[in-house]
Amino acid sequence: MALSSNRTIMGLLFLAFTLSILTTVVTLSKFDAWTLLEEKVTGAASTSASGESNLTIVASTSITNNVGSINFGTGYVNASCVSCMLDSNGSFGTNSPGSYNFSCCVNFTNVTSGFLLENTGNLNISVNYSCLGSCTAADFIGAGTNLFQFITAPNSLESQSPETGQIDTALSCFQNNSWNTTTYTSVSTAGQYLCGNSTVYPLDFDNTRDAAVVHIRVNISSSTIGTGTRKNATFTFGALSSG
């Protein structure tokens, strides 16, 4: 009886001991105690004079918009035209789709640079946007058959500067231009994912394929009655990574 009781006690002791060790290991592994040794210290060297240097490379998720403003300026549509189209890719003035007539857009600024998004961290990321302010054609331009759209293109095709490091030489987003908005898409307040999604992170951090340009296009019909007040649409571009 006494022997059996002792065995039970020993068994319980062993279990409690194992659980305690397990808990300690799990807790420490999640609070950097092990990771400092296993993952983050990526280089270590010692000299004969007993010196020691440590290098820690921290994982970083970072997106940078290198062109912060697209300002189409102040102007109006020539009354003899159907509409005026302004695009940050430099397309300026139109009387009908595909036909450019500079005189249709009076006084507006010819913008030649879109938002230049770049993965400036050291992790692959997905990219999304949301918009605040005048984010619909009706709000940004006014009532009527107006358009407020955007399109995304790899910077290896746009060759826009300034990029950190170098201008891309290869297609970005899955390295094959898998941007979700490669045709003109209406701007919305809620926004959407531009490359990848909440679980897939295809925009490479490699300097040769880490950037894209978001061009903004507005089409103002000649029937639009301007208000004379500045309309702003603030785009927030977000990056997500596996960390």
């Binding site: 697209i70 300026g73 960390g243």
Partner: peptide
């Protein structure tokens, strides 16, 4: 799991009213 980063950009325009035109 999901560290994130944000960057902003602003698009702006002023359309003149008829009297200013």
């Amino acid at each position: 799991i999901s560290p994130n980063s944000q960057s902003k950009g602003v698009a702006s325009i002023v359309i003149q009213p008829p009297q200013e035109q």
